[in-house]
Amino acid sequence: MTVNRAVSVFAGFMIMLSLVLAHFSGQIDLTKISWLWFTAFVGANLFQMGFTGFCPAAKIFKALGLKDSGASACAG
């Protein structure tokens, strides 16, 4: 695992952990539809990208014509 992938795993985990902690402390209610589910999706995507290397955002940006520098954490 590279440093970039480890950072993605860590960032994704921390995003999801913060949502879970806020939910169980009563600050937010994840049982209702809200924009926080978008945050959960981003965290989960970062987490899985760190392990699999697959990044939907990178595929979309490449399809739009952006070039890959090769140094990106999301260069899959």
Results as ranks from 00 to 15, higher is better:
32 K>H: 14
29 D>Y: 10
19 L>P: 04
10 F>W: 09
66 L>Y: 13
51 F>T: 05
16 M>I: 04
25 S>W: 11
55 C>Y: 00
67 K>S: 04
25 S>L: 15
47 F>G: 10
73 A>T: 09
60 I>S: 10
35 W>D: 03
63 A>C: 11
62 K>T: 07
22 A>H: 06
42 V>P: 00
24 F>S: 13
1 M>N: 05
40 A>Y: 03
50 G>F: 02
5 R>P: 03
12 G>F: 00
4 N>G: 09
67 K>Y: 10
32 K>W: 12
32 K>V: 04
15 I>S: 03
65 G>N: 09
30 L>F: 15
49 M>Y: 03
61 F>S: 05
32 K>I: 10
74 C>G: 08
66 L>V: 13
75 A>C: 13
4 N>Y: 01
43 G>Y: 01
57 A>T: 15
5 R>Q: 12
66 L>I: 14
70 G>P: 02
22 A>E: 06
72 S>D: 03
31 T>D: 03
7 V>R: 07
39 T>L: 08
22 A>K: 09
59 K>N: 15
38 F>A: 08
56 P>Y: 08
18 S>Q: 13
23 H>F: 12
22 A>D: 13
67 K>I: 10
43 G>K: 00
29 D>T: 09
19 L>W: 04
68 D>M: 11
59 K>S: 15
32 K>C: 11
31 T>M: 04
64 L>A: 10
9 V>Y: 01
57 A>M: 14
60 I>R: 11
21 L>H: 07
14 M>Y: 07
46 L>S: 01
28 I>L: 09
6 A>K: 07
1 M>C: 07
72 S>N: 13
15 I>K: 03
38 F>Q: 10
65 G>L: 09
12 G>H: 02
12 G>S: 01
61 F>D: 05
46 L>E: 01
34 S>M: 04
58 A>T: 12
68 D>C: 07
27 Q>M: 06
7 V>P: 02
